[in-house]
Amino acid sequence: MEVQIEDSVLIRSYVNGDERALETLINRHNQRISSFIYSKINDRGITEDIFQDTFIKVIRTLKRGTYSEEGKFFPWVMRIAHNLIIDHFRKSSRMPMYDGSDSFNVFSVMGDEKLNAENQLIKNQIDSDLSILIEELPEDQKEVLLMRIYKDMSFKEISENTGVSINTALGRMRYALINLRKIINENNIVLTN
């Protein structure tokens, strides 16, 4: 029957310069620590990183001679791994990172605000159709509509520029829109993007 050397003995040998003792320690606890990290993280790559960082801390502490024999080696390493897992989640909640996967791709819910080439063509077509329709409106209504929509003027400014009251300008705008809708309906024009 093979006799297993205790962790505390291996640690003492390692601190005294026996590098093979560290190899035995790592191999002895590799699976339990890695599985623990993986159960929380669910990512093989990050599990490797955290496992590595855990043992870097272990090595530094042992080499510095600041490890105390009070507790057991394995729970101590698990505590380090646990703290590093928490650090990882803190960091990733500050900088959320989304990976695409087979079932979910972040680009299906994210996009830039610009229209794609097809929608841009459709928008241009609608704009040009609309400008033709606006030409059909009576002059006074057309004037108000152009000032309001294309020049982004307020009704106060429109009334000052056209020499009519604000209420008249509002009325002309209303009739302009009603007439535009009427032309669109009568001619079965479809303006959608």
């Binding site: 790592i26 590799n30 699976q31 620590i33 599985s35 599990t47 490797e48």
Partner: peptide, 8 residues
């Protein structure tokens, strides 16, 4: 899970 040999 086990850490890869190259990590060790």
């Amino acid at each position: 899970v086990k850490a890869q040999p190259r990590t060790v």
